[in-house]
């Protein structure tokens, strides 16, 4: 019943927005063509790269017609990208694409788990508990977001060296446990709107406060946590600066492929490199394709819906 009502409402909304007069129709056709051209400029270079990832590298390097399709399709470029394309770390060890993928995956997993979970903890505590430092913590959280401190990379770099976590997976674990950034605001907004009566009912039944958080409150925040995790996944998978700066011997696909490209000469095996780039894009495209609705629907004023 609810679905029927919602569908009817959506149909009404769509009809109001789509109803156009004769002159408007022409304008909308022109705009649609312009949008189509812009969309083509985004899709075409990517197709260009995908097509060239199947070319024989000598054919690619000597090609005179950039619009030409490969004379033969070299699927083995993908095997070359996986098995032969590599970079050398500080100890002289060769690191290939498989290891870079592995690094990207654990890097994403740890960062998302640490960042989103800690933000859920701080968001919950500051919205549901009244304690001495609560207001000070909230003010600090807002202040550190409002005033961005420029150029503390040097101090951060020095700190990681002093702590002995430079070029170590420990850096990823420790630095990901932040709970006062943008994610905090989303989780704080969400938990502020959750009724405390659920918790009170659970307390009467003898549940501990931690149990209430983990078994009652966190499951309710699933959609917010999922949206934050998807956005974080795309951001972290594509982040090349952090691994380049702090994890030189743990390259991810984003940073490792850049280092590989740096060692190329003009006559390098670019098609295999393109194959590596295409492979590095597949995980984010899969996540985006399967979760684009979640991202599109949950974005609202200044960020995500609480």
């Amino acid at each position: 019943m609810l679905n029927v009502k919602r569908k009817r409402r959506m149909d009404e909304t769509a009809s109001i927005l789509t109803h156009k007069s004769g002159k408007e129709k022409i304008l909308y056709i022109i705009i649609s063509v312009l949008f189509g051209l812009y969309a083509l400029t985004i899709v075409y270079p990517l197709l260009f790269m995908i097509i060239n990832s199947f070319q024989f590298y000598l054919e690619y390097n000597s090609a005179t017609n950039p619009f030409a399709l490969p004379s033969s399709w070299h699927f083995e470029n993908y095997i070359t990208a996986i098995s032969k394309m590599n970079m050398v770390d500080s100890s002289g060890r060769e690191i290939g694409l498989v290891e870079m993928f592995f690094n990207s995956i654990w890097f994403c997993f740890v960062t998302i788990f640490g960042g989103v979970f800690c933000s859920a903890c701080t968001g919950y505590c500051l919205s549901k508990y009244n304690f001495k430092l609560r207001n000070a913590m909230y003010t600090i959280a807002i202040f550190s977001m409002t005033i961005p401190i420029v150029g503390n990379t040097g101090a951060m770099f020095k700190l990681t060296s002093d702590l002995g976590i430079y070029n170590s997976p420990l850096y990823v674990i420790l630095s990901s446990l932040g709970g006062f950034g943008f994610n905090f605001l989303v989780m704080y907004g969400f938990f502020s709107n959750v009724s405390w009566s659920y918790a009170e009912a659970a307390f009467i039944d003898g549940a501990s406060q931690l149990k209430v958080f983990f078994q009652i409150m966190l499951p309710q925040a699933f959609m917010s946590i999922l949206t934050l995790s998807i956005v974080a996944f795309i951001r972290v998978w594509n982040d090349y600066m952090t691994p380049l700066l702090y994890l030189p011997d743990y390259p991810t696909v984003a940073s490792g492929l850049y280092i590989i490209e740096q060692s190329f000469t003009r006559s390098g095996d670019y098609p295999s490199y393109f194959a590596g780039l295409v492979l590095s894009t597949i995980p984010v495209i899969i996540v985006f394709a399967s979760c684009s609705d979640v991202i599109m629907k949950n974005f609202s004023v200044g960020g995500l819906k609480g």
Binding site: A39, I42, L46, M49, N238, L277, T281, V284, S292
Partner: peptide
């Protein structure tokens, strides 16, 4: 609306190389 958001999803290195 999906295609226009793609540059935020696709890795910078891929967009730049293309």
């Amino acid at each position: 609306r999906i295609v226009f958001y793609l540059p935020a999803v696709i890795p910078s290195l891929v967009m730049v190389t293309a």
